[in-house]
């Protein structure tokens, strides 16, 4: 039986269609299978002039059933070393957080999730997150410390991740 096509699925179809027509450079994304539009695979290219350069990082987007009212979740598989990515690969940036949730008041409401955002904007934010980590609200404390105190070692380990991501 095909899944019911509801608001969330229609919107995901539209976003998918738009991304296939006109996709920003360095990003590929689409549903894993047509039976389930709520799980997408993405490939994100490491931005130039960063230690992530030349890397191609796979990630998985999981959409809630009430998308776009609630934001999706983005997990790098495997995880990569970055101050704003948890050890389990989950990305922690403001655009993925609903406006109500911000116990520490780090994020301005206009930077957070609202139905006006979309997959493309999320992935672009992730690319800019890769080039400019935000250690103020870090997710991976070890990575934050390493980034702040020993940038050389941080970049060396990231480049090792990049080589791994390319299967070298």
């Amino acid at each position: 039986m095909p899944p019911r096509v509801n608001t969330a699925q229609r919107r995901l179809l539209k976003e998918y269609q738009q991304l296939t027509k006109d996709c920003p450079e360095g990003i590929v994304a689409g549903p894993v299978s047509e039976d389930n539009l709520f799980v997408w695979d993405c490939l994100i290219e490491g931005p130039k002039d960063t230690p992530y350069e030349n890397g191609v990082f796979p990630a998985r987007l999981t959409f809630p059933t009430d998308y776009p009212l609630s934001p999706p979740k983005l997990v790098f598989t495997p995880s990569i070393l970055h101050p704003n990515i948890y050890a389990n690969g989950e990305v922690c940036i403001s655009i993925l957080h609903p406006p109500g949730e911000d116990p520490l008041q780090y994020e301005r409401p206009e930077e957070r999730w609202s139905p006006v955002q979309n997959v493309e904007k999320i992935l672009l934010s992730v690319m800019s997150m890769l080039s400019e980590p935000n250690v103020e609200s870090g997710a991976n404390i070890d990575a934050c410390v390493l980034w702040r105190d020993n940038r050389e070692e941080f970049e060396r380990r990231v480049r090792a991740d990049v080589r791994k991501s390319l299967g070298l």
Binding site: P2, V5, G30, C42, L43
Partner: peptide
Amino acid sequence: TNEEDDSNLITSAQPQNCSIQASTQEST
């Protein structure tokens, strides 16, 4: 009554073979 519409919608949004490509060059 709606099954047909739904599957049309899904196949239609899948313009071609859209599996994610392994490298960005291929993807462009």
